[in-house]
Amino acid sequence: MYYVAHRLFAAHDRALAAQLAHHLALKIGEDQVFLPFCDTDEEDLVADVKGRRIFELDRERLRSVRAFLAIVHGPSPDDGVCMEIGYAAALGAPVILLTTDFQDYSAAPHGPRTVFPDPLLDALATRIVRVPLLGTAVRGPATSRFADFAARNHAQAQYATEACVDAALQLPARLPTMSVPAQDSSTVYAEPSPYTAAHYALPGLTTITGVTILGPTRFAAVEPITAARHDWDAALSSARIVVDGSGPETPPGAALLIGAACATGRPVAAYLPRSTYTHAVGREPNHRNLMVQYGVDATLRSADEVTAWING
């Protein structure tokens, strides 16, 4: 099963993902491609707890994924997509990331650059398909510059989806099995939020004794992608993972690690002292993204709850 992940919440995002899934299905057959929202019939799905049911349906596909294709754009990657990327990568599935973003990212004005705002995305990608430039279009006598600009964007999207499909079809027939690191019961990995003033510290950690608290190294590293791989291994070898979910949406690194912990059975909690909720017809209120909400074992609201969860 080839899983196509994408931001769900605007028509143009869903249309681009459908285009990618369609081109892939033409090559390998519709029954080999899973497209969330479309294949869970999300708009018309009826369930007692609809958000949880959507999470369960998507997780079932993730557990049998042959390859994972994700559309990732901009300085704020979708947290649900990042959760799914982390899940697939932790199970050893190849991850192909498609972006039409023309920006690079760095932690300092002249620091090392990465394709994505969090180097962990670069590190987890088996292949990055990047199409940053507009396509070409011939302007006819009856068109405007706006129609011409739209045509150039359509051409870019067309080329990007075709390149992503080609990358998926070039994956080897047999892929190596990824080994899951053994857990070290004396360590806890703590992932802070880049959106908070503390940035590199979660509340409540200084009062914990008897465990080693590990944290990210990638944001200040000379080689951020190498450091990101180290962070990934450190998180997956820890007995517990706690992430700070503060921000406009769950930070990419936090969402990636939630997905990885969910896939491998590691306890994971999200510190979220204040949350906005999302609402949709027939669905219970969710903490912004339902994949993140149901992927964690606990949502922590205070420093005392962080301490208690780690000590528990």
Rank of each mutant, 00 (worst) to 15 (best):
H279L: 07
S238G: 00
G210N: 07
H154D: 07
S76P: 00
L236I: 02
R53K: 14
P112F: 09
R52C: 14
K50C: 09
P94F: 08
L97C: 04
H22P: 07
E30A: 15
A67K: 05
V222W: 07
G51N: 14
G204H: 05
G51T: 05
A155T: 12
L121A: 03
I213N: 02
P194W: 04
C164N: 07
H110K: 13
S237L: 01
V129P: 07
D184L: 01
G245Q: 04
T136A: 15
P172L: 13
P267G: 02
R7K: 12
L120H: 02
A15N: 10
A255I: 09
N153S: 12
Y159W: 08
L8N: 07
A270Y: 07
R283V: 04
L16V: 08
T276L: 15
L300A: 08
E60Q: 12
E284T: 10
A11R: 12
V242R: 01
P36A: 03
A227L: 03
L16W: 04
H199I: 14
G259K: 08
L205A: 03
L214I: 13
Y271C: 11
L236R: 03
T299Q: 08
P192K: 10
A5L: 05
P285I: 10
D104I: 09
V268F: 04
G253K: 06
G29M: 13
A221G: 11
W232N: 06
A163F: 01
A88L: 07
E43V: 08
T177P: 00
T161I: 06
A173V: 12
R66F: 07
P194H: 08
R53D: 04
D39N: 09
E305W: 05
